[in-house]
Design a protein around this nucleic acid. Sequence first.
DNA 1: TTGCGCAACGTGT
DNA 2: ACACGTTGCGCAA
Length: 158
Amino acid sequence: MIYCVNYFGILLSVYVEDDIIIKTSFSQNCEGMQRNDFQRDFEKFVLRDRKALNFTFGNIDDRLRKVYLKTMEIPYGFVSSYGDISRAVFGNKKYSRFVGYAMSVNPLPIIVPCHRVVRSDGSIGGFSSPISIKLKLLEIEKVKIINGKIGKAFFANI
DNA sequence: TTGCGCAACGTGT
DNA sequence: ACACGTTGCGCAA
């Protein structure tokens, strides 16, 4: 079953099997999708109520899983860099490009907050969906971007 | 199974 | 702004 969630004005398709979320993706409209009460659950979840949603990564590469779990430790309203996540998971920054790849194939956007992963110099970095969505999500979380850069104070200690 | 181009990167110049 | 160091992935030989 595919549901549609309006997450602070951003539309999200939510794929559910056996009451477990197996995939999310940003979408333009909710044609053919069912509305439900996920919206409140999502809002609770992103505010770090881990039990608000049931989800699974399925059978994915263990390195990807580790990157996603680490990314989920970034608190609401904070960011981290590709390099910092690389260091936290693999012990050094050499895998920062791999972290970027991991974000680009993130099966669970919003649940895995890939929008909170930015460049080490504070610039925004990339996004698979329109970059405006990443900016909007950061704006929702009150992360301030000045001259295209995010201040050090917004970087979480991972 | 190599080789090559590419990538949501980082760092120094 | 640019070059270069890195890793992993996809695809053509």
